[in-house]
Design a protein around this nucleic acid. Structure first.
Length: 412
RNA sequence: GCGGGUGUAGCUCAGUUGGUUAGAGCGCGGGUUUGUGGUACCUGAGGUCGCCGGUUCGAAGCCGGUCACUCGCCCCA
């Protein structure tokens, strides 16, 4: 018992829980399809560069959270830590640059070597969408709208906050970065260790530090919104306007930045405070530089990914396995006669189970336990009369009828 | 990677300051019921007290280590 278990942060999914995941995934794929995002699937492992190049060497995902290994031909492979890079790589490989825009949805397991927590596993599922080939801000709005509809479908949107920010284009960000570093330099002695490290590597990330002392400093830091060039600013304003048109409520969070290097312009997060510290349930943004980082041509893109497990923790629907009918033989000799009957029932879309073992009392107990609505009982008497006994397990009423009649009752 | 909490039956949990055969409820098996369930009653099975080591005459309870879960940090979906 102790010897055989799953590895840390990796869980089995039994019907109860898997059902919820399925609810999330089905809702996500369905609404994505309505927005004309077609489902794709990419491998769960890739050459490591597919992820290391775009994610950037300073990101935690690359430096400490990856599952990286060499296979027997000494290729450096990585279990995918996120979905976007793989989808964009597939898009480039398929030559779809010739046929833009492309809208994709996907879901599947991702892997990150992190300390497990509620809503944070080492193998977890993400469902995401990517809109490739459109630099128009309309695509940003579309994608956020899709995410919003998704969570609305799941019935959890009232517990969600939408936060949005812009990182600007490269020029704006560079300008802002200098201003920010200049500002933060004055507080070097007060910054947390981590933030101090980031001051030279990735100063924007300091903005979403949760360290209390850092936050005091950040509070008065200059805002990127003041350093956007005209193009970046109008883009952001137009997106906000678009969300207003859709009646999507959002907060502008000037400290919202993304951990991954390939993001630019729009960044957004859908968060909840129902899940403790792992409150981000869906997040994404624009990643115009990604395609080029992967060695492709300059293809803009925008998208998001949602945490299936986190969303599953929020939905209420419960799994109940109800069965239409059980087939019961008076003794084991009758079991083989039940098989063709069951086959007919199944062909008519009736969920069935033959209860093979036990005396009649046991069989009915099981019928009850598995929440069967009806029972078909076959014994000597029935066989001689060419019928079977059909019992409504709710009312307890029994009658002798044939298969056709039984199917009629159960399919209406 | 860092810090706090937890680990006793399939599940939820009791277990006094270390002291005989470690308990309950639910669930599971058998029976009351030789062609009939849900209720009720009777009865049974199931635990190396996470694992390893130490202290002790004696450890589920104390100490150390380890593993897992959990909460927070980091980071992220």
């Amino acid at each position: 018992m102790e010897k055989l278990r799953t590895v840390r942060g990796v869980h089995d999914l039994l019907p109860q829980e898997l059902y919820k995941h399925q609810q999330v995934i089905n809702a996500g794929l369905k609404i994505s399809d309505k927005y004309n995002y077609s489902q794709v699937e990419t491998p769960i492992f890739e050459f490591a560069e597919v992820f290391t190049k775009p994610l950037g060497n300073s990101s935690d995902i690359v430096t400490k959270e990856n599952y990286i290994f060499k296979d027997r031909s000494q290729d450096e492979l990585m279990l995918r830590p996120e979905g976007t890079s793989g989808v964009v790589r597939a898009f480039l490989n398929a030559g779809l640059v010739q046929d833009i825009p492309q809208r994709f949805s996907y879901y599947g397991p991702m892997f990150r070597y992190e300390r497990p927590q509620k809503g944070r596993l080492r193998q977890f599922k993400q469902l995401g969408v990517e809109c490739l080939g459109l630099s128009s801000w309309m695509a940003d709005i579309e994608v956020i709208s899709l995410g919003h509809d998704f969570l609305e479908q799941l019935g959890i949107i009232e517990n969600i906050n939408v936060n949005i920010n812009t990182l600007g284009d490269i020029a704006s960000r560079k300008k802002y970065r200098d201003v920010l570093v200049n500002y933060l330099n004055d507080f070097q002695y007060k910054l947390s260790k981590d933030s101090l490290k980031r001051l030279s590597i990735n100063p924007l990330r300091i903005l979403d530090s949760k360290n209390v002392e850092d936050q005091k400093i950040i509070k008065n830091a200059p805002s990127i919104l003041e350093y956007l060039n005209l193009e970046s600013r109008t883009r952001f304003e137009n997106i906000c306007k678009g969300l207003d048109h859709l009646n999507i409520k959002y907060n502008i969070d000037k400290n919202l930045v993304r951990g991954l290097d390939y993001y630019c312009h729009t960044a957004f997060e859908f968060t909840t405070n129902e899940l403790g510290s792992q409150g981000t349930v869906l997040a994404g943004g624009r990643y115009d530089g990604l395609s080029k980082m992967l060695g492709g041509s300059d293809i803009p893109g925008v998208g998001w990914a949602a945490g299936v497990e986190r969303l599953a923790l929020m939905i209420k629907s419960e799994f109940t396995n109800k069965i239409d009918v059980v087939l019961i033989g008076q003794s084991e000799n009758f079991n083989y006669l039940l098989l063709p009957i069951m086959k007919k029932l199944i062909q008519n879309g009736i969920k069935s189970e033959i209860i093979y073992t036990g005396n009649l009392s046991k069989k009915f107990k099981r019928a009850n336990k598995i929440k069967a609505s009806y029972a078909i009982i076959l014994g000597e008497e029935e066989v001689s009369k060419q019928v079977f006994k059909f019992k409504d397990l709710k009312s307890g009423i029994e009658k002798l009828i044939n298969l056709k009649q039984a199917i009629k009752i159960m399919t209406k």
